[in-house]
């Protein structure tokens, strides 16, 4: 029982970590909290759903379409709204992203209705047994995709010239520009990349829970915010740790307490963490 919950916690936590990593990357470069990030995930999950149900293409095509949809949503948001309010007060971009989130939820509610839809899952029957631990192939693929994506992002940021330029921009934008970094391009890449990660996370959530609805964006967007704050706003390692922590916490609290209190427990933990460590577990982090 415990081992099974441990697997569930790791799988959910890895998806939360992936969401939060995208969120943290976006925050560290753009210095805004994008409250439409969850709805970007939701819209991407629906694009994946459409590919699976209407084109006859497989899950890889659906995942690629979801990533592209996420990236496109983020790029449009930057190009037509956020770019024009840069350098102004902090509330304006926050309000814009709330507006975009509401708009996306409304549009997808009109298109697909308010009810959850069953998401056609991959490898539905497959189960891998390792000792006492049983893991479905869906869970295994979700976990592996999330981990490989995060490790790849880490390597790009650490080992490549372009990755260093992203980190330098997150650290000191003006100085990075003074040494030749095209920071405008970096901003565009950062929002495209992070929103693409959001798109991938969206379809992984739909795979994990087997459903998709216009309201998953609000739920998971807020959870990403919780992870972001717990982990330290611009820290990728903090986002991974925070994501795994929250995923494990939710699964264990559902298994050993009452599942109805799952979200209440998550947000209570957030309040406690912020009361003790007001700047999260990793304060002063800058895209590490």
């Amino acid at each position: 029982m415990f081992a099974e919950q441990l697997v569930n916690g790791l799988v959910l936590g890895s998806v939360y970590a992936l969401i939060a990593v995208g969120f943290a990357l976006q925050f560290s470069i753009l210095r805004i909290i994008n409250l439409a990030y969850g709805e970007t995930m939701m819209a991407s999950a629906f694009v994946g759903y459409l590919v699976l149900t209407h084109t006859g293409l497989g899950h890889v095509a659906a995942a690629l379409a979801a990533i592209a949809a996420g990236a496109a949503t983020g790029l449009l948001l930057e190009r037509f709204t956020l770019r024009y309010v840069r350098g102004g007060d902090e509330l304006t971009p926050l309000m814009i992203t709330i507006g975009v989130a509401t708009l996306l939820t409304s549009v997808f509610s009109m298109m697909f209705g308010f009810e959850q839809r069953a998401f056609p899952r991959h490898y539905t029957g497959g189960i891998l047994t390792i000792g006492e631990i049983q893991i479905t192939l869906v869970q295994l693929s979700i976990f592996l995709i999330a981990i490989v994506t995060m490790v790849s992002l880490h390597l790009v940021l650490r080992r490549t010239r372009f990755g260093r330029a992203i980190r330098a921009t997150a650290d000191r934008e003006h100085i990075a520009a003074a040494f030749g970094v095209n920071v405008r391009l970096i901003r565009v890449v950062a929002i495209g990349l992070s929103s693409g990660l959001g798109g991938l996370a969206g379809i992984l959530i739909a795979e994990n829970f087997g459903v998709v609805s216009p309201f998953i964006g609000t739920t998971f967007g807020l959870k990403a915010l919780v992870v972001l704050i717990i982990g330290g706003a611009a820290s990728l390692s903090g986002a991974v740790a925070g994501g795994l922590f929250l995923g494990m916490l939710e699964v264990m609290s559902s298994a050993y307490f009452l599942s109805e209190y799952r979200d209440a427990i998550s947000y209570s933990i957030l309040i406690i963490v912020l009361a003790i460590w007001p700047r999260g577990f990793v304060p002063n982090a800058v895209l590490r």
Partner: peptide
């Protein structure tokens, strides 16, 4: 090239990475 006021090194990067950014 600029040596900015108050140093403004890339604090979250290593010394070598800072120099690599200089040679960007």
């Amino acid at each position: 090239a600029l040596v900015p006021s108050e140093r403004q090194v890339f604090a979250s990067m290593t010394v070598r990475e800072n120099l690599e950014m200089g040679a960007y």
